[in-house]
Design a protein around this nucleic acid. Structure first.
Length: 586
RNA sequence: GCCUCGGUAGCUCAGGGGAUAGAGCAGCCGCCUCCUAAGCGGCAGGUCGCAGGUUCGAAUCCUGCCCGGGGCACCA
């Protein structure tokens, strides 16, 4: 409908330009929005107020001229000029009729824009280090990314979803060493477990796996392991130096092959755990992109070579720096350390280049808010590589804080005292978790109320929406029991009998669904869809309490059933995009 | 100090140039011989952090300040 009105106004403005009423080169951003007050019609446009000044007349006068030139449309009953110069559009009965018809005809595809009608988008999200189970912070990024990807797809983008796996680097070495130390412990060796090693119980599980595959092959005495290591943090030394020395010691005692075997078991175990976790959360990826592969394929060297060629690299104090500060970043960034190893950022640059090569459209990054400092350096990298930084889109997801019994749940990753995504799913269920994570703007801190998420009452928005869907199904079940059939054709012919206020409101709201998808996609904001579904559910519940569906009158009954079914379609389609189920009964 | 997100009803949050600023929860008052009351209706509740500015019009945009979250490694 919005697009239709825009078309009408564009035509009218065309005539006015031709007549010289408004300037020809006047670029106008025609804004059409659903009204808040039904007295103002269904959609309002402020274009007359925007153009009044340059046209040299008052807004109402210009609105009058636009109105005269407006082509007639079957979908518009009336257009009024109101207030300071708004053009208020009232939808016709015909329009409301075709809304229901379209929804019933398109079913699960209602609301979708034609595939590939918008540029392709490569979206990368979660990308948590495979050094431990996902926690509730990752959960929000996962829910946001997956919902957004589905919405973008529905809005007409071709979407590729990727998880970037940091399977290289020091954190993975620390995990491998942690596993090996637990393995030694399980083998009966007395070894000290460092402060900075991974403390979680899952490390024992992986260690058991190492033992079952390798037996005592990787066993070394506690003395061999700890002999002349620098002191750990709590021993008055440097915790980082201690663990680095331990990594070196592990490699030395195990040899490259065995060390890599432990490393591989740890990586494999964590990845399959994460993959399974996300899978159960309804979050899937098209590609799990390995950081190591960037080294192995030469992509990393290639990317650095490109930067060097364009003169953005510089050697200083034995390290190689990317001159990011000349491209808008705060400071220069190291790509090759003085010990010869490349940095994490160097891999990022290579991955960035590969993404832009593979996807001709936008590359969309979903970061936790704590990574916002990465934005300028990646934009600088894109520019340094000779790519367009505007092809990068960064969305930052703010933190989620869990509340139970009205109290904040304290978490600390270091000590392993955190709630995992799996714990959360088991406690509140997948549906509630998915909805709660995205019901607030991603730019907003989220207070996640566990008690509310578990509630089976209308105070819980997920429940409220799902209940509306289940109620509709139950109407059709009752119809069945009565031995009656729903006849869509009769309903369609009689749709104009739906004149009650709740019915009219619902009809209009259902017609807005495709615009909601478009909007949520454009603004990268799944919460817009979450709010909309809540609104639809509310309008349905309200209607349900005011009207009887299974009435004697064939016309009226079928008309109401048509609207109920259309409502169910919209609820189902929308819930599906945000990964929430639409139950048949509750 | 710099960067970033936020400050809207008692609480949690929508609205992000337009008309009288909305919803849920909490509070108060009502509604089931009837398709799910796991629901609905009503009442009450506001200095949109503060101060300037731009505009026909500012919760919304700009500047400054105050308050809170987060970030500023040759860590990942």
């Amino acid at each position: 409908m919005r697009a239709h009105i825009e078309e009408l106004i564009t035509q009218a403005l065309g005539y006015l330009k031709r007549d010289g009423v408004i300037e020809d080169d006047q670029a106008v951003d025609i804004q059409i929005e659903p009204t808040k007050d039904p007295k103002h019609g269904d959609y309002a446009c402020n274009v007359a107020m925007m153009l009044a000044k340059s046209a040299g007349m008052n807004p109402r006068e210009l609105a009058e001229k636009i109105l005269k030139r407006l082509p007639s449309s079957k979908r518009v009953r009336e257009v009024q000029i109101a207030g300071p110069g708004f053009l208020n559009f009232f939808a016709s009965g015909h329009y409301l009729k075709i809304v229901v018809r379209e929804i019933l005809a398109q079913g699960e595809h209602y609301g979708e824009a034609p595939a590939n009608s918008l540029e392709p988008i490569l979206i990368e999200f979660v990308s948590a280090n495979p050094t431990g189970p996902l926690h509730v912070g990752h959960g929000r990024g996962a829910a946001y990314g997956a919902s957004l990807a589905a919405i973008l797809q529905a809005a007409g983008h071709t979407v590729e979803k990727e998880y970037y796996v940091n399977d290289d680097g020091r954190q993975m070495d620390i995990l491998a060493v942690s596993v090996w130390l637990r393995y030694l412990e399980l083998s009966g060796e007395r070894v000290r477990f460092p402060d900075n090693a991974y403390q979680g119980d899952y490390v024992y599980e992986i260690a058991r796996e190492v033992r079952s595959r390798h037996g005592d092959d990787m066993r070394h005495t506690g003395h061999e392991v700890s002999e002349s290591l620098p002191a750990d943090g709590d021993q008055g030394g440097d915790a980082e130096a201690h663990i680095d020395a331990l990594i070196a010691r592990a490699k030395e005692l195990l040899g490259e092959t065995d060390y890599q075997a432990v490393f591989a078991i740890a990586l494999e175990a964590m990845l399959s755990d994460i993959r399974e976790d996300l899978d159960e959360f309804g979050v899937t990826f098209d590609r799990w992109y390995s950081e190591r592969s960037l080294h192995e394929s030469g992509a990393l060297d290639q990317a650095l070579a490109t930067l060097k060629e364009k003169d953005w690299l510089e050697t200083r104090n034995g390290a190689v720096w990317f001159k990011a500060s000349e491209l808008g970043d705060d400071k220069d960034r190291v790509v090759i350390r003085d010990n010869g190893r490349s940095t994490y950022f160097a891999s990022d640059v290579a991955y960035l280049l590969d993404k832009l090569d593979r996807c001709p459209g936008q590359s969309l990054y979903i970061f936790g808010a704590d990574h916002h400092g990465y934005v300028p350096r990646l934009k600088a990298a894109a520019q340094g590589l000779g790519e367009d930084p505007d092809r990068l889109d960064f969305q930052l997801v703010q933190f989620a804080v869990l509340y139970r019994d009205g109290k904040k749940i304290q978490m600390s990753t270091r000590s392993g005292q955190f709630v995992t995504l799996r714990d959360l799913r088991e406690e509140v269920g997948k549906d509630a978790a998915r909805y709660f994570y995205i019901m607030r703007s991603h730019e907003q801190h989220l207070d996640f109320d566990l008690d509310l998420a578990k509630s089976k009452a209308s105070e819980n928005p997920v429940f409220y929406i799902q209940y509306a869907h289940a109620r509709i199904q139950s109407i059709f079940n009752k119809l069945d029991e009565a031995g009656q059939r729903h006849n869509q054709a009769i309903g369609e012919a009689a749709i104009s009998q739906l004149v009650a206020e709740p019915e009219q409101a619902l009809l209009r709201a259902l017609g807005r669904y495709p615009e909601v998808i478009e909007n949520a996609a454009k603004r990268r904001a799944p919460h817009i869809l979450a709010h909309y579904l809540y609104e639809i559910a509310g309008q349905f519940h309200s209607w349900y309490n005011h009207a009887q569906f299974l009435v004697e009158d064939d016309d009226l009954r079928n008309a109401r059933l048509n609207l109920a079914q259309a409502t169910a379609h919209v609820l189902r389609n929308g819930l599906n995009l945000i990964g929430v189920s639409a139950p048949e009964s509750m």
